[in-house]
Amino acid sequence: MKILLSLLLATSVAHADTELSLGSTDRALHSSSANALTDSSLIGGQATVAHLLLPNVWVTGSASIGGTSGTMLQMTTSVVQEAFQAGVRGRYPIAGPLSAIARADAGVSNTDLTLDNASYQTLTDHGWAPLASGALGFELAGRLNPGIEMGFRFELGYVACAPVELSAKTHPADDGTIRLPMSQASLGSLDLSGKYAAASWLVRF
């Protein structure tokens, strides 16, 4: 950590044009397919790197992971989604350290689903699908020294995910036994779209 901080300080310039942020997200799942699996939100974290492109306009790249679990028809369900997005963010200074922000991103996501019944087979599958998100929020940022700013950002937005088609795949233990070929029925399309809230800590240098 000390090495990282030293590097950041060593590379910092008078105008902070690069940003790293780390935060958590909470996405409300309202689609019927998501409601089938859980009554909980998709909770996770995200890491974002951004670079100042124009005054108050940043290009961003982010990686996030979120998960939720629940029960459905006496089975335990688990959903994990990893997403990789790129986008732009605009900032509008309001007063002092307070700014309003707006952002839009697009990328791809991988959704993992597990249906587990302790006495029987476990069904799993995953699928890739595009997603896009947009958010409004505010940030509080203050300058620590001439080259470094630190701050806090809160966003409310919406993630639109393309439904991902999943099948009821089983993965028997690989003990060397020759097994019969398997054919899986479709579980249907899982849509993890929903409103989300995110809070993150940021550093600019």
Partner: peptide, 15 residues
């Protein structure tokens, strides 16, 4: 022969 799985959860998420 083959094994068919998940037919009782067929298109469950679309229901």
């Amino acid at each position: 022969a083959f094994v068919l799985t998940g037919f009782l959860t067929d298109h469950l998420l679309d229901a």
